[in-house]
C-alpha cells in the first residue's frame, strides 16, 4: 500500500523534473483526448455489458435451477473461465475477420458482411468476448442464490396456487437482491480484464470504439508518461472505491430494510 502513496505524491509532480505542479496532471488528463475517449468507452462498455450479462445469466440460472442433471451444463458454461485468452485468439481472429467465418455464414444466409474489427462493431465483439468469458461464474452465483431460498416457502406458495411466474417475481427475485449486488461488483471489476482479449486480438491501438482505459494505461506506461499515469491511477482508484462503497452502502440499507421478513436459509 505504501507504494501507492508514492503514486499519489507523484500525481502532483511533473514527470521529468519532479517539481510540484499541484493539480496540473489532473487537468492534463481531463483535457487529454485519448483519456476522454478511453474513459467514455470504458464506462459505456460497463453500461452495456453488465445489464446484458446479468440478465442472460439470471435467465440461464433460473432454467438450470428447475432441472435435475445440471453438472454437465454447468461445466460447459464455466469452461471459458479456464480457457486462457491467448489460446483462443486464433479462433477470434478467424471468426471476426472481414473475410472470416462469421461473415462467410452471413453471406451464406443472405446478409451483408460486416467489418467487425474495423468499425464500431469492434465494441460489440468485445462485449461478446466478455459475456462468453464471464457467463459461467455469474450463472453459478445466481444459482447459489436461488438454491439458498428455502424450498418450503416456494412449496407453500405453490400449494396456495401461485404459478411459477408468480413464484419467480414475488419470491425468488426479491430474495436475490444481495446476489445482484455481488454480481454487479464482481462483473464490473472483471470487465477490466477484457483488455486481454482486446489487446491480443487488436493490439495496442485497436479501433477507437474499443480503445479502453486499459489500453491507455499500457501505452502511457510504454511511453513512460508516468505523471499522467499517476494522476489517472489515483483518479481511477477513487472512482472505483467510491463505486464499491456506494454499492455496499445500498446493499446494507436493503438488508436493514428486509431483515424482519428475511426468509433466506442460513449458511
Amino acid at each position: 500500500m505504501v507504494p501507492f502513496l508514492d503514486v499519489i505524491r507523484r500525481s502532483f509532480l511533473t514527470a521529468v523534473t519532479g517539481s510540484f505542479t499541484g493539480i496540473e496532471n489532473y487537468k492534463m488528463i481531463f483535457h487529454n483526448q485519448a483519456f476522454l475517449l478511453a474513459a467514455k468507452n470504458t464506462v459505456s462498455f460497463a453500461a452495456v455489458c453488465l445489464p446484458l450479462l446479468i440478465i442472460i445469466s439470471l435467465f440461464i440460472a433460473v432454467l438450470l435451477s428447475r432441472m435435475k442433471q445440471v453438472q454437465f451444463l454447468k461445466s460447459a458454461y464455466l469452461f471459458p473461465m479456464a480457457v486462457p485468452a491467448a489460446t483462443v485468439v486464433l479462433i477470434w481472429k478467424m471468426l471476426f475477420h472481414k473475410q472470416g467465418i462469421l461473415n462467410a455464414l452471413l453471406i451464406k444466409f443472405g446478409g451483408t458482411p460486416i467489418d467487425f474489427m474495423g468499425s464500431n462493431m469492434a465494441f460489440w465483439v468485445l462485449v461478446i468476448s466478455y459475456i462468453w468469458k464471464n457467463l459461467g461464474y455469474t450463472v453459478i452465483l445466481w444459482l447459489a442464490g436461488i438454491l439458498s431460498i428455502s424450498e418450503s416457502i416456494l412449496e407453500a406458495a405453490r400449494v396456495d396456487g401461485a404459478s411459477e411466474r408468480v413464484c419467480f417475481w414475488k419470491i425468488i427475485l426479491p430474495n436475490l437482491k444481495p446476489t445482484l449486488y455481488t454480481i454487479t461488483v464482481l462483473s464490473f471489476l472483471n470487465s477490466f480484464k477484457v483488455f486481454r482479449e482486446a489487446y491480443l486480438v487488436a493490439g495496442s491501438y485497436p479501433h477507437e470504439s474499443m480503445y479502453l482505459l486499459q489500453h491507455l494505461f499500457n501505452n502511457w506506461f510504454l511511453n513512460l508518461e508516468l505523471d499522467k499515469m499517476a494522476a489517472a491511477a489515483v483518479f481511477l482508484a477513487i472512482v472505483l472505491t467510491g463505486f464499491i462503497l456506494l454499492l455496499q452502502f445500498l446493499w446494507d440499507e436493503r438488508e436493514r430494510d428486509e431483515k424482519p421478513e428475511k426468509i433466506r436459509k442460513k449458511g
Binding site: F4, D6, R10, F192, L236, A237, L240
Partner: peptide
Amino acid sequence: TFYIILMMMPFQVTMLSNYLV
C-alpha cells in the same frame, strides 16, 4: 476492508506503484 478494496482494484490502478517498487 482495506484488503478487500485492494483486492478489487484492477491491475491498471496498481501498475505504476508495482513498477516503481
